[in-house]
Design a protein around this nucleic acid. Structure first.
Lengths: 338, 338
DNA sequence: CGATAGGGTGCAAACGTTTGCAGGGTCACG
DNA sequence: CGTGACCCTGCAAACGTTTGCACCCTATCG
């Protein structure tokens, strides 16, 4: 292993000069700098991150905690977080909780110990547990808000977060269905404990009055393909003419189940999802869904974290969403004999 | 930040004892150990990885380089690599090359500098470039083989790798189609530069004679949904009754295109994929495809790497694959007028 | 021409661990 | 009772950087 000492000897300077030539070039004479740079290149010098991390107290790495890497939603988040971090000179450590809230604290702990900060995406943990796991670690949340503890005196600031405008998304979806003549629409909710799930249901309820549609709560389902299959049967049983699903995976499950049961989409039933996963555009009929700027989400999360690390005052925010109308939604079926 | 010194003071021992109590408990008296452990817990001591990494020369982290995190295939690999590594006490740094072979060396470099070793999955680089990027870094390859350089004297051992039995997979697929009566089968190949792509085509050619089927090379296509759409039209034009695709994404594209063109699957055309991505089982008709034990692939890659790190002699290998027959393949259509 | 400022460099002390070496104590054995 | 063996612990030196401080030298100004 070649160290600063080797480079120093080769360049005929002291190790401090080597360090400065490489780290803050403006503090060393041009000619010396060149000599050092050249020597370093010739020897193939690679600075030791552990050493500089130790001295500077910075690792130049960030951590990312996600519930499930195989979920295309989080795959996209991971991809964009990784891309942005790398562009800013940071490496990314990733940990997958496998949808288990119980392991989140331990993952957070492990990653926090070796990184400068964390992006925690859609944590499944409850408020108290999450707050406990996050004490002392600089983190930002993606798709989750964590209000500061009520304990007076604990002046802990709220954890910065970046989310999407769930309420607006479902409002757009419901408006779309309303305009198509649907009066009774089913809502296939996600897990009761899901933060964004709660926001979406609340948004739907708020929008229902405005758009003059009756909401039928079909129940809470797993946010996967399988959950959608289950939800589809409930939708058919409840007499709705449209259903909005918690997310795309579920919507795709609904679509598949409806096809199996011989129900025409969108002729007899309209389906709208949420997320606009890659796949949504590829199936037939293509899925009408609320598009989330996933790449921006990851990127903004990193920006937020970096702002915190650099001492700025990061400002939490919501990303705008946009309903993307495709083939799975259409006019409500004409009144039948009832 | 609480250090060994703080714990030492609290426990009334020296820092060496603290270090030993925590690192090699058998070397310190039971009573002292307890005292130290308790003090550490009370103070909330977290060992500094940078420091121990510096001293021990080990980071206890590994790197993973993949072409595209959004590709469900690599998402699964990433997930299993991460799981296995964590189970073995290692963290995982991930880097996404975005399918760009040119950035792979730089990613490998960056990760190698902060980890103990690398898992490089399906690298897109050519042999020479890859070999160059890998000199001096301990790495294992997933889904790629890299024969040692021919240069005599450069005693560099081959890079250990873990792959899947591509030849057997396509042989099974072709045998299945043959048994169903197909005599003219189209092959929708992936990018010409793909290592596994080459193996699969070779395997098909080898198996064709044995199963008495005529192979029609439809061309090279992008290994994505869009590539499949393109391939489907070629398949229809060529008069084959079945097509085997380079991977599932492509097969799904073929399926979708055939449906759009009103071609019944499997009535008029059979389709078989490769990989058995989650989604393959979910579409209708469900995709007949060669199942790869993806979870084991990542796991084995990590095991291989860890074996290397621990001084063992890792042995490269192939994972067995298994044809999974679903709805997209069926008997060849009866002879028509022509 | 002398004083002063400031740029360029080196010395040495950190950063928080781990670990070779050695000292002190206890115990068993001769 | 003396001697050696062995267990437990502490001292101090690493590991490879970064950086405060101090030094020297040159240029500038009065």
């Amino acid at each position: 292993m070649v160290t600063v000492h080797d480079v120093a000897r080769a360049a005929g300077v002291s190790i401090s000069t080597v360090s400065r030539a490489l780290g803050s070039p403006e503090r060393v004479a041009t000619e010396t700098r060149d000599r050092v740079t050249r020597a370093a290149a010739e020897l193939g010098y690679r600075p030791n991150h552990a050493a500089s991390g130790l001295r500077k107290g910075r690792t130049h790495a960030i951590g990312l905690v996600v519930p499930d890497l195989e979920n295309p939603y989080f795959a996209s988040v991971t991809k964009s977080v990784q891309a942005r971090a790398r562009a800013e000179g940071y490496e990314v450590l990733v940990a997958d909780s496998d949808e288990d809230a119980a392991v989140e604290p331990e993952l957070i702990d492990a990653l926090a110990a070796r990184t400068d900060g964390l992006v925690v995406a859609s944590p499944r943990s409850g408020e108290a547990e999450l707050r406990a796991a996050l004490v002392g670690v600089t983190a930002v949340l993606a798709n989750r808000e964590l209000p500061p503890a009520r304990k007076a005196g604990s002046g802990a600031a709220a954890v910065p977060f970046i989310a999407v405008d769930d309420a607006d998304g479902v409002a757009q979806a419901l408006g779309h269905l309303s305009a198509l003549g649907h009066r009774k629409v089913g809502v296939a909710a996600g897990p009761a404990s899901s933060w964004s799930g709660g926001r979406r249901v609340a948004g739907l309820i708020a929008a229902a009055g405005r758009w003059d549609v009756e909401l039928v709560e079909l129940g809470n389902f797993q946010p996967y393909f399988a959950g959608g299959i289950q939800a589809a049967d409930h939708a058919l049983a409840s007499g709705v003419t449209a259903v909005v699903a918690f997310n795309d995976l579920m919507a795709l499950g609904i679509l598949d189940r409806l096809r199996h049961r011989g129900v025409d989409v969108p002729g007899e039933m309209s389906v709208v999802g949420f997320d606009d996963v890659q796949l949504a555009a590829l199936v037939s009929p293509a899925l009408t869904t609320v598009h989330i700027p996933l790449a921006r989400l990851g990127q903004r999360a990193v920006d937020l974290l970096l702002a915190r690390l650099r001492g700025g005052t990061p400002v939490s925010g919501q990303l705008p969403v946009e309903l993307t109308i495709r083939g799975s939604s259409g006019p409500a079926p004409a009144e039948t004999v009832s």
